[in-house]
Write a protein that binds this DNA or RNA. Structure first.
Lengths: 221, 221
DNA sequence: TGTAATGTTTACCAACCGGTTAAATTATCA
DNA sequence: TGATAATTTAACCGGTTGGTAAACATTACA
């Protein structure tokens, strides 16, 4: 009895595709804003416009909905880092990585918050993913960055903490959106904040990682 | 009937001080790791080593515990930014702000996660604090930073996004601790990670904000 | 020491929550 | 169209949750 009833039909139907999609969309909305424990099946059902037993016809448990969601989202969430190219120009690569991550924070804030909630609360349901695929990917890209530093193309720095810094600064605009808007105030909280953030962050990281920074000797001022 | 029974005694007793302290300490532990909705009074009671009705003798509702906690923590949480000194040397000020924030992430991760949970879930209970005291303080410090930039002491940049970047990068080590440890791996996840982070972040921000960096040109208006 | 004020516990309640059952309804297709 | 498979709903269940009432225990102090 490990499968929901919908998965035990003779064929996979059109209705199953549609409803499962609908449910995951609603689940994303609810889980992202309330966390796992803070979300109820009833809430998801209401957002999806379906009855609770009907959800449970497609997903056997609340956990199953969450798991399906995580699996679907995790992969696409790592895409920007995968595109990080060892052959490219370091400055260009870092700049476009920042831009892509910032675009994701703008266009898929719920996905970002879904993970943030999960990690913040100790990642009880995604620990494997963190220590497996995520760590492997980061390890791989860290090597690339280290090679760039060794070749003198960027300043010598800890590649892991560089990646953390890019994650933190970009996802901040999704995860802490309410705070960002509150601090910027009504007039500056429009969509333009993402362009401003991009400009600032690109400047920060490009300058910050440039070889032999100007702060090295007595600054020209 | 807005006050808990303990607050309706003739004098404030020693036991009240002690028990309220004990409860808030337990509440911090629980709220920080589970968020508001995900936490139960029973959990807090168990951590505090008291019975549930006993907690409710000191705090009328779960909300009241959370509110008392937020109020107590918010103030100290903003202290590092308050110390930010207009008269000081910009590089020194920024560097020590980063260091202080990083120390707080290391020494008070629960406080950081308490806010992160709250903001992440839309800040329903601290919106006033964000738009009031927090915004005022940031506005004030943003002016200082802008003045430094205008005087040519640091690169021209958006002071709000600079502050966001410092918040994001430092709090990351408290809020996303599980992820940081998972990615760094067992051998590098010791306490040394905070020193590594400090070294990287100081380099990043000091170089990144240095005037007329080597990658000069496209900086913000 | 006695007693009034303070503190703690036991027992309880109504609402909520995750999930099940079985019956009713709708879609599919020979 | 009718039979069968697929879908949906109403009713329900046991456990949990936030919170209360009232009896009981302890402390402070005259």
């Amino acid at each position: 009895m490990a499968l929901p009833r919908a998965a035990r039909t003779q064929r996979r139907t059109r209705i199953q595709e549609e409803k499962e999609e609908l449910i995951l969309e609603a689940a994303l909305e609810v889980f992202a804003t309330n966390g796992f424990r803070g979300s109820t099946i009833d809430q998801i059902a209401e957002v999806a416009g379906m009855s609770k037993p009907n959800l449970l016809y497609y997903f056997r448990t609340k956990e199953a909905m969450h798991l399906a969601l995580i699996e679907r989202v995790l992969d696409s969430w790592l895409d920007p880092l995968r595109e990080f190219d060892a052959e490219g120009n370091p400055v260009t690569e870092i700049r476009s990585y920042i831009r892509r991550k910032l675009e994701m924070a703008r266009d898929f804030p719920r996905e970002s918050r879904l993970f943030a909630n999960e990690v913040l609360q100790g990642a009880p349901r995604i620990e494997d993913a963190l220590m497996g695929p995520l760590k492997s990917l980061v390890d791989e890209k860290a090597k690339v960055i280290r090679a760039w530093a060794k070749a003198g193309k960027i300043a010598k720095c800890d590649p892991y903490h560089l990646i953390f810094a890019i994650w933190a600064t970009t996802q901040h605009y999704a995860d802490f959106d309410v705070q960002v808007r509150a601090v910027l105030g009504k007039d500056r909280a429009g969509e333009g904040r993402f362009e401003d953030a991009a400009r600032f962050l690109e400047h920060l990281f490009v300058n910050g990682l440039a070889v032999g920074g100007p702060a090295a000797g007595g600054s020209s001022a």
